[in-house]
Amino acid sequence: MNRAALKDIISIVVRLTVTCLLAGAVMGATFVLTHEAKERNEQARDERVLYAILGYGDNRPQNMALHTVYRYVLAREDASSIGYVVPVGDGAQSVVMEVDLDGHFVQHFELLADSARLRNDGERDRAVIAALNAGMHAQGESTIQARYADKFIIATQNGRRNAYILDGKYPGFKTFIRVKMALDEKFSLMGFEVLEHEEDPGLGAEITQPWFRNQFAGKSYEQIKKLQVTRSPVPDPWMDVLSGKITGSEAQTIRQQHADDDIYALTGATISSRSVLQGNQAMIRKFVTRMEILDRVLKEQHIETLF
């Protein structure tokens, strides 16, 4: 190899390295300057969506409190189980309720972490694993692995439960649709919001339209289980109510007439409409089963919670 070629190679390597370092520095600096604001924006957006699907606008209720329950999949050497991280006492403490896959209580662990610390994903994971394994070592058993699955929020008004808020993700026509949903204390659907989707604009993307989403609002748990998608056109008065053109008592009467209607599919997007319905149904069914198990277990073990 001659000298000139070697010099060329070194020059290329040095220049590329310097370019990469500079690019990295610029991107890193921007990230450091902006990531806090970005996180704040995302939290604010999450909160706005949350209150919107609960039916509150800008004037938020005073005596409302939100309690988050985190669900973990616990894996031992021989079996898996589910761990629910539930806030107890005045919110300064939590317990991990371990329930096996058939819904029977296994044991519970104390978790010394307040709700603010639990909100941080990394800290919560560490706290849960530490709590689980502190209990296990005393019994001389092997360690338990804990993997975060999802979370749901229980809203209380003056200490009485009045809503559940769940996050979910299910397949749409193309990729996943991510939603946030509110159920009332009897598991009727209060409303849901599409947070992310990649359906076709003008077709499947219409799932974000208020009139389409409003069809689900007010359906009871029993109704939801049996709902179907129908391709017949939406009756005009019902459409006016769903899109908010008619309000007040007139809307109430029309709403009652259509209370048992199936979900009217979006024109040209039957598959997206059906995906949303089936996704919502599965989300609600799973959640209700989990919530019933958790409530029963908490009651059996006489654990006082804030909700």
Binding site: T19, C20, A23, V26, M27, T30, F31, L33, T34, H35, A37, K38, N41, E42, A44, R45
Partner: peptide
């Protein structure tokens, strides 16, 4: 490509922070 990617990332981050 590096230059373009850098500017795209910068604009992506700034927009997410300033104009959510």
């Amino acid at each position: 490509t590096l230059v373009i990617a850098t500017w795209v990332t910068v604009i992506d981050l700034v927009l997410a922070a300033v104009f959510p």
